[in-house]
Design a protein around this nucleic acid. Sequence first.
RNA 1: GCGCCAGUGGCGGAAUGGUAGACGCGCUGGUCUUAGGAACCAGUGGGCAACCGUGGGGGUUCGAGUCCCUCCUGGCGCACCA
Length: 787
Amino acid sequence: MSKKYILEMFPYPSGNIHMGHVRNYVIGDICARYHKLKGDEVVHPMGWDAFGLPAENAAMQFKTHPKDWTLSNIKNMKAQLKKLDLDLDWEKELATCKEDYYQYQQELFIDLYNAGLAYKKDALVNWDPEDQTVLANEQVIDGKGWRTGATVEQKVLSQWFFKITNYAEELLTGLDELTLWPEKVKTMQRNWIGKSIGAEIKFDVIGKNESLNIFTTRPDTIYGATFIAISVNHNLVSKSLSSSEIENIKNLFDQVSDEKEKIGYLLDIECKHPLLDKKLPVYVANFVLDNYGEGAIFGCPAHDERDYEFAIKYDLPIIKVIQCEDNQLPFTEDGLVINSPLLNGLSKSDAILKITEHFESEKIGKRSINYKLRDWGVSRQRYWGCPIPVIYYEDGSYRVLEKSELPVLLPYDVNLSGKGNALLNHNNWRKITCSKTNKIAYRETDTLDTFVDSSWYYIRFLDNKLKKPFDNQRVDEYLPVDKYIGGIEHAILHLLYSRFFMKALRDIYKLNINEPFKQLFTQGMITHKTYKTVNNEWVMPKEVIYENGKLLRVKTKESIEEGPSEKMSKSKKNVIEPDEILENYGLDATRVFMISDSPPDRELEWTDEGIQSSKNLVRRIEKYFTIKSTNLKKDTEKMIEKFIFNIEKNILNFSLNKCVADIYTLFNYLEKEKVFLNDSEISKKILICLYPIAPKMSLKISNKLFNTNIMSEWPGINNELLEESSINLPIQIHGKLITTIKTEKGYNEKDILKSIYQIEKVKNKILERKVIKVINVQDKIINIITN
RNA sequence: GCGCCAGUGGCGGAAUGGUAGACGCGCUGGUCUUAGGAACCAGUGGGCAACCGUGGGGGUUCGAGUCCCUCCUGGCGCACCA
């Protein structure tokens, strides 16, 4: 018996499940039921990603409390999930907003801190001045707060970070071993980690005891450097300019209408070229990123598009150092190095190697690796999240709490007026006496990013009631998750953070698990046609009726325009409610439709015809099993053996749409051949295979036929029955199909060719020509080649 | 711009380099029905046919939807990453 940990990404308790959830969980449920029948020890839990901003917004909007709102949503959604009759282990249920989850997360925070993986630093955040709160990047729309519309400011705040960059290399190389992950997701993570190999070069500031470092992937173009550009946040800027001057530059940059337009501000300092007796002007430039590399570049206009554009604008020299025609500038491809005393005639890669060695020997630079990946900022100036277990003294110093001082519980009595962080305003909660020093102290009022919650929930599921975060032995035994199923939208953040957490916890707790998710399956979204009135008002599908060749709105008889099929969304109202579908079509039809019309990783278009035909299939199968007859034909066993084989293969491959095809194929055959099974063993086999997909129906039928629950063991396959002795052998001439002949496997080539040459069609094709070659792929195909 | 993925009937989609279009939807004709979002039977890539057909063009192969090159189109991701 082997363990199978099957997990669907846990939902945010928004209030109601939607069809996307249904598809997600049905896919997982089919896997789980299949593996249980196979005798595996299946772990299949469900929980709630229950902290987060929507609860606070809802609290303000509906005058409720985030906790009450969330818990009542969980209750409601759990009831909905129960209606889906998913084979979940509800004993393992957890909600990240409950103390018995987040207090252990606070323990993990302490562990991470002690391991040097959590630290504090100043960082720029998006600040909504009206709400007095920090906004995530995606909450800033066109520079304005999504809720208030106020212009968002950049503000420096002291924030907690997790040192995910410590694991950048392992997070990157680890992807190669994730053979059961979609290539697409791995590519996205690789791009996100963004590893670049190059060199770091030191440039001295002339006349000052200063220097700046520059990261470049093209040290081979160093002789073509004609200027330096640095980010406005570079420390050399604050050393050279007053804060009002810096403000002015920032304003200047903000005014650029085209984001790609490059502007620069010439500083009153110059750098020395590290290899040449040459001065390079230094610009503050809007296109230099301050959070990548060293926040500074050397400009080589001849061989970099951005530098070229900048040089043209500011009339800077352009020096070719890679062989090319003048009209090819900027020339960014590989070529031979020219105009570079130490490198002339070398290829790009040789030049990079040689110049980097030279830098190292001269102590003006070194080989360097850079990652786009930044450390993970986890502070959120929000109430409804996991409190960070830290206290601050009045002198500004802080102390991370000890595990014995946990939990730090969220206070219930908060004022959620919308202005600022409710914890910050809650003085009773904030102000404490430090148990160690007896000094007055204040709690950290930031809470953790909810991505922290979801970075280890799959571990907590294994022991959701344990009085510590997890049990090492169980983790080693049950992780990684064998099949993790969810949306592609989590391709980067959630999955990367979880991978980081697993590795960090591995190192802290000496676990043997490197990766949390062995196989990742990303299911496609559900789409539906969109409907609009002539006044551009979105209309729900159920409000639309087709009458006399026209689409009309049921209530008003307004004419309706049909739009393209798009992802179901509340804003476009093209949604179908799971509760209504279950009511109208039943559980099994709903499940069947979720996997019918397209492969699970592609989008599924919701259609009335689709759900209806799923219902028809279920009804057809039920009806089939009501007919009692005795006509077991000789090929039936073969058909059924093939059916079992295919269903199993297709479940394991997530080719669930093909499972539906297998079901149709079987019942088409049985009905057409008028085979009605009185053989209870064969009926049982079929019903067991149907059970993962349509459990309710299968149970109902089996109870009626056998008066007992037969869903105990997946049928074994008799390989002998799978073997076909007679085949339809395709006959080709020059690779083109001429005919097929029925023959026995293991035929004699010479004998069969004799009879093939007698076939009229073949004769006509060959005529006077001479057969020069016959390719016989035994039992597969025969291809005849003539002159 | 860069990267990844994908282009197959009217539609969704099947095809370890070996009979293209499994299976479903839709459609056509029929049967049974007071009726039917029911059920059943037959048909359904194009062409009268020889034949032609997997986005276009080339290539490898006895044989290509599948492998290689190239172009086109669509989707997704990243986006001034030095």
